[in-house]
Design a binder for these strands. Structure first.
Length: 803
DNA sequence: TCACCAACTGTGTCA
DNA sequence: CAGTTGGTGA
């Protein structure tokens, strides 16, 4: 016990040892949040206040769940199998598998990732003959997910105009389609689980009785539905059979785009009448200057619960800032800096390069690759999201459930079997007319097309037969060969890598079995107990069995039960819930590349935040969203607080984006950092850069308005000018195409050039990104940062050169 | 039916 | 730039 609680600070200790009552822990970045959570669980168990089965701990990412389990097993020598620790989606999946009957799902239901979901929606719109210009699939996808995240079925959504009414109808039709095909999307996992608990009193009471302690990580990221789900499990705010221990940081709420509702923190405090509110404000991670930047930045947000991080470690090194000419140069500089960090003795693993969006990784990867520097990219296209893997998984899904039309359509003609769009249209008509799946409808067709289709269903049937008693790895191996996938990619020029990925799928299956503790020899399609089932609860709980024995629940030992699920079904669930990393080489010492979002929860000795430019970070799309800027600022706050010792901030004057050169202003976030904590690695000619030293009152902090914001004001030094007289630009001395074009236009008599900084009386400062026409008709396109990109006629607009 | 190419479009973060 | 759609010819 004493070792368990040793080295906790006062607030941490208070949080860990709280009585079994509702509690809200406001945990700042680097304040030991995960430690508090895991120690709390260990403390509850080791003091006998809770049994492992009585604990429900929810996180958002698989990574966080794994981390918690690892730390817990290090603290307590207990079997964690009976504990419900996992992501919201993972736990809901577990619950729905166990009670699939009550949830009206086939036990083999498959999970759609967002790709699959979009494909399903496109298919639906086509079937219904809906104009997908008027109802873009992506919009419908967002609409559906948004509704589900609010806990609303189609029948519960408020209808206010014809368009919206149609969307609701399509939502209902989409749900019908999913139900017919036995598939559920991510949001559905939660909603289905919620409705199950709400509808089934016996089941609800069982879980309420079982879970005495509910612990939630990253509470600020919960959405309305998750909040309600927790409420059901906890027996509601009033009676409260369980103590809810919520840990969160409103300043790190960065998932509003997927429905997260920071308001849940305040709501929780109010509705649950939380008496125990503890703030963890001592930061153990970052040096002073870094923390100072984070605090100063986040202070610009209006809606905060209020919290200020402090540290006992000294000021440390200042935050380094680098301004590049081009994104390529930014990456070059990055490589050099990382080289010297490594030379100083840092592990590459302890160096992270962060960016706002995945698209930015490309240039950086290119530079690292050319320099022979090992790196590892997180996110982007992940292993289980690759096309060839999805094809293989579709075959696996058809073995489990032939009625899965999405899987059917994905592979019916892949590899090509001469089954074209016309044939499939006929089949879909037939299936719809009879209300059956595509697979089932094949038998009712006749003609040449039917023969080809029958060949495919025959193949699937044969594969089913052949693999009946095969272990999972053999099955996967057999399937990628006999489906014709490997042979198909062998004929492709670029197919080798895809074949390697398919082979890697066999390894992934083996690794999955090992991780789940399933024997490699168990037949993949026969039942094996894989997941803890909610039958007999904690030791003191009376065994409630609101479960139909036909559900396949098995009691392993007193108090421990499991769902009988085939290894194949479990593997498919794993593949959709855990997209997997996209690169092998876990152990290698490599620089870590990732988006700021995926960096949340991690920390590194040195962190580079790149592409700090208006439009990129803060992202331009966030401008149209309510409170979009505040979320971007929190994102920046998360990025800064990842760094332990060294932080680098960089931006570039020009950047290739969507295939064309863009001229960006540097991010407004620089204006919000204390100048004394920054060290500029590139010269700032003119003494004051934008914002610093300028009267703060002069600019509006509002995202929406702020017309008089003194934007763009870096007095650009002479050396940064480009586009005239062929002078060395500092960028290999070569003029880019855009610069050449600009120079040409300059020769035609328009006294401005692309890339030049200008000031406009109303819009403030901006940078010229395009020029058209000449003489009276000449007009220039200017990026005014948050004012947007505008075309101005030179005969009308009065522009002042800047710099 | 399918391979191939041209034109077009959209481009943010996650489970 | 990349992925997707649309058209064409075999």
């Amino acid at each position: 016990m004493s070792t368990l609680l040793a080295n906790l600070n006062e607030q941490q200790l208070a949080a860990v040892t709280l009585p079994p009552q509702h509690a809200l822990i406001l945990a700042g970045a680097g304040s030991g949040k995960t430690r508090v959570l895991t120690t709390r669980i260990a403390w509850l168990i080791s003091t006998g206040q809770a049994s492992p089965q009585g604990i429900l701990a929810v996180t958002f990412t698989n990574k966080a769940a794994k981390e918690m389990l690892t730390r817990l097993t290090a603290m307590l020598p207990i079997n964690t199998r009976g504990m419900w620790i996992g992501t919201f989606h993972g736990l809901c999946n577990r619950m729905l598998r166990a009670h699939h009957r009550d949830a009206a799902l086939p036990q083999t239901f498959q999970i759609l990732d967002s790709q699959d979901q979009l494909a399903a929606i496109k298919r639906l719109l086509k079937t219904l003959g809906v104009d997908d210009e008027k109802y873009p699939p992506r919009n419908l996808q967002h609409f559906v997910n948004h509704c589900k995240e609010q806990g609303l079925r189609a029948g519960q959504v408020e209808v206010w105009d014809d368009y919206n009414r149609r969307m609701v109808e399509l939502y209902a039709a989409y749900d019908d389609q999913c139900q017919r095909e036995g598939v559920v999307d991510f949001a559905e996992l939660l909603l289905r689980s919620y409705e199950l608990l709400q509808r089934n009193q016996l089941l609800r009471e069982h879980y309420q009785h079982r879970f005495r302690h509910i612990l939630i990580d990253e509470f600020q990221d919960t959405n309305v539905l998750q909040y309600k789900w927790i409420g059901l499990l906890a027996g509601g705010p009033e009676r409260g059979s369980a103590a809810v221990f919520a840990v969160g940081d409103d300043d790190q709420s960065i998932y509003a785009f997927r429905g997260a509702n920071v308001g849940n923190m305040a709501a929780f405090e109010r509705e649950y009448r939380v008496q125990n509110l503890i703030k963890l404000e001592q930061n153990y991670r970052s040096h002073g200057h870094i923390l100072g930047c984070a605090n100063a930045l986040i202070a610009n947000n209006a809606k905060r619960l209020g919290k200020n991080l402090w540290t006992e470690s000294g000021e440390g090194e200042p935050v380094r800032v680098y301004e590049a000419m081009t994104d390529g140069q930014e990456s070059q500089w990055l490589v050099e800096e990382i080289r010297s960090l490594v030379a100083e003795g840092h592990l590459r693993n302890d160096v992270a390069v962060l960016y706002r969006s995945n698209a930015q990784s490309r240039v950086i990867e290119h530079a690292l690759f050319s320099a022979g520097m090992p790196y590892r990219v997180y996110g982007g296209l992940r292993f289980f999201e690759r096309a060839e893997i999805k094809h293989a998984l579709a075959y696996l899904r058809l073995l489990e459930n032939p009625d899965d039309d999405g899987a059917f359509l994905r592979v019916v003609n892949f590899p090509a079997r001469g089954i074209g769009a016309r044939t499939l249209e006929q089949l879909q008509d037939a299936a719809r007319a009879r209300g059956i799946s595509l697979f089932a409808a094949v038998g009712g067709l006749s003609g040449a097309a039917a023969t080809k289709l029958a060949a495919f269903t025959g193949l699937v049937a044969r594969l089913r037969d052949e693999t009946r008693r095969m272990p999972l790895t053999d099955l996967v191996e057999h399937l990628i060969e006999r489906s014709g996938l490997v042979a198909h990619f062998e004929t492709e020029k670029e197919g080798q890598e895809r074949i390697e990925n398919l082979r890697e799928l066999v390894n992934a299956a083996a690794a999955f079995l090992a991780e789940e503790g399933i024997s490699q020899d168990v037949p993949a399609r026969e039942g094996v107990a894989v997941a803890d089932a909610p039958m007999a609860g904690a030791g003191d709980a009376q065994p409630v069995a609101p479960i139909d024995p036909a559900d396949g629940i098995e009691v392993l030992a007193p108090g421990v039960s499991a769902v009988r699920l085939t290894p194949l079904a479990a593997f498919l669930g794993h593949a959709s819930l855990e997209a997997g990393e996209n690169q092998a080489g876990e152990g290698a010492d490599a620089v870590q590349l990732m988006t700021v979002h995926s960096a949340k929860g991690l920390e590194f000795d040195a962190v580079f935040i790149t592409g700090l430019e208006e439009g990129l970070f803060p992202h331009e799309n966030s401008a149209t969203e309510p409170e979009g800027l505040e979320e971007e600022r929190r994102l920046m706050y998360v990025a800064i607080t990842r760094a332990r010792q060294r932080l680098y901030l960089s931006f570039s004057q020009t950047r290739m984006l969507h295939g064309q050169t863009r001229y960006n202003l540097r991010s407004r976030f620089f204006d919000e950092l204390p100048e004394g904590s920054l060290k500029w690695l590139t010269p700032r000619v003119g003494g004051t850069a934008r914002g610093f030293g300028a009267p703060r009152e002069a600019w509006s902090p509002r995202w929406e308005s702020g017309a008089q914001h003194a934007s763009g004001g870096a007095r650009r030094g002479e050396w940064r000018e480009f586009g005239h007289s062929g002078r060395d630009t500092g960028d290999n001395g070569r003029l880019s195409q855009a610069e050449q074009r600009a120079a040409l236009r300059f020769d035609r008599g328009v006294p401005w050039r692309v890339g030049q900084n200008v000031a406009h009386a109303r819009f403030g400062e901006g940078v010229i990104v395009g020029i058209e026409g000449s003489g009276e008709d000449a007009r220039v396109q200017i990026n005014f940062g948050r004012q947007g990109i505008k075309w101005l006629a030179l005969s009308v607009a009065r522009l002042e050169p800047v710099g």
